[in-house]
Write a protein that binds this DNA or RNA. Sequence first.
RNA 1: GCGCUUGUAGCUCAACUGGAUAGAGCGCCUGACUUCGGAUCAGGAGGUUCUGGGUUCGACUCCUAGCAGGCGCACCA
Length: 574
Amino acid sequence: MNIFEEYIKKITNLILKNKEFLNLDNLNNFKGIAVESPPPEFDFDLSCNAGLLLGKINKIDPKYLANKIKDLIIKELKDFENIEVAGPGFLNLRLTKESLISKINEILNNKESFGKKNSNNNYNIEFVSANPTGPMHVGHCRGAIYGDVLSNLLKFNGNKVTKEYYINDYGNQIKNFAKSVFLRIREIKYNEKFMPNEDLYPGNYIIDIGQKILDSNKKEKFDNFEKSLNLLKKESLKYSMDLIKTDLKELGIEHDNFFSETELIEKKLVDKAINQLKQNNYVQEGFLEPPKGEPDKNWKKTKRLIFKSTLFGDDTDRAMQKNDGSWTYFANDVGYHMYKVNRNYEYLINVLGADHTGYTKRITAAVSALSDNKIQLNCKVCQLVKLYKHGKPFKMSKRAGDFISVRDLLNEVSKDSIRFMMLNRSNDVEIDFDFDKVLEKSKDNPVFYVQYSFARISSLFRTINKNLNDKVELDIKNFSLNENEIKILRKVFEWPKIIETASSKYEPHKIPYYLYELATLFHSYWSKGNENQSFKFVEEGKIKKTETLAIIVLVSIVIQRGMNILGVSLPDKM
RNA sequence: GCGCUUGUAGCUCAACUGGAUAGAGCGCCUGACUUCGGAUCAGGAGGUUCUGGGUUCGACUCCUAGCAGGCGCACCA
């Protein structure tokens, strides 16, 4: 049930049926008609801009038109007890008790699906895809949580979602990684001092990995790097992915599919993709212009395969081959994305870190080219998490082994706080993350505020000895809502709309904001009893008004659905 | 130089994707505890929405020209 959509339809139909009466010629602008909640200072449930919109295109005074529409609504729909024309021509509408009760019952009878926006598309969301050369750091977990919650959200609406992780287990960085492990093994086994340089990974976790590999390969001498390379790559990758998977799991994240770059190469998927693009002349041999900006010493003008991504809105065409003729990282990624396209998803989403902003155009271009413009890849970039330590900016470097890992964070702060905090911000805004502050202030993290409201609700149900799922019967004769209750109810009505925009725009941060607002209204309602005894909910172990019960159950429904989507727990005691 | 992105209260951010008097938290000031669990609540102060121009009934939102911050700009991954 989405009350706003319901009345957009009803009012639109009414206007269409009565266009002569309203003297409307031009009705082609119904898209812009909105029914929403009016600002809180108006004591109405809904507001509608039909008068403004249609007045404008038909050159009729909006207020006059709004009044005519008002008359129509009064005549045809029995749902409202009061309608007013306000401001420049808004219609404000207040529902009758009967309609309120029927809306409330509708929600109570469909608890699980309240807010659900029915759709059944097939989504692929690629997220995290952190390089398998070490544990996850704090920056990774933003995209991880964003992707996970987006998946939950889309699933809640009935879509099929594949959560995918692309393992970049090919190329130089893996060789360097293996080399680092090799040297650490030599350090352990032969007491050779590990000399860090800029190609090597210095972190202590490399020692752990080395030790594990030593333990399970007792016969191996590790006297020649090239000879041990395959073993080292395979084992190091495995342990490194174990680290990442453990971190993800503790954050409450589980991918459906891990896809390896090496496998991609072995299956010749890159060649296939490039052949396909060649047939459409999207890939051709040619020369690229030298890169703009800083002059590059290594730059050579060489004939090579080039993807014409400018045809799809990119700034420049992109190289598929390196100087030595091997595929570029991008070429491999094109192969990977062909594999995605071929699996018949309606929507592809990539969640990327801020350092990939410049990459999005070319890969979206590639997907358009591969799918004949049928599939749109949507790249969502999560901005940086700026770290502070002791109030000072803290530069992270995975290479230097100098970073705050997800593990460090999890040791201090709960999964719930991390998830809520990382989401409580739109993805294209930087997050200031003061490590010390988070620790100090963990108690007034907004997540507790929302959780606490549910704990209070649970506590109330314990004292009246009832269950949240017990049936609530509303009696129309005595039905009345006080100011707090009506505010909460109106907020609850907005829930489906929050889900709708959060999922269609890929903006999951709307949810924590909304839940916080709902919790605020609830706490305020609850506290009324402290000021004035007559507002107490309970008398002699029994609830005084069933309306109270209904409203509180509504709040609990929304908070449960919401926190479930966020992947944050909801204890009934705190 | 180019692309993407951000600029809103002292600070950190919202604003239903063009709606009505721009809202929260923190911080500051005032008040409510023999608590239906105060991890809470009530109230106050705080704004030229970076600047200039444009579009229209109506702009934080769209267009345009600037200013300032961030990220990126290999044939690295």
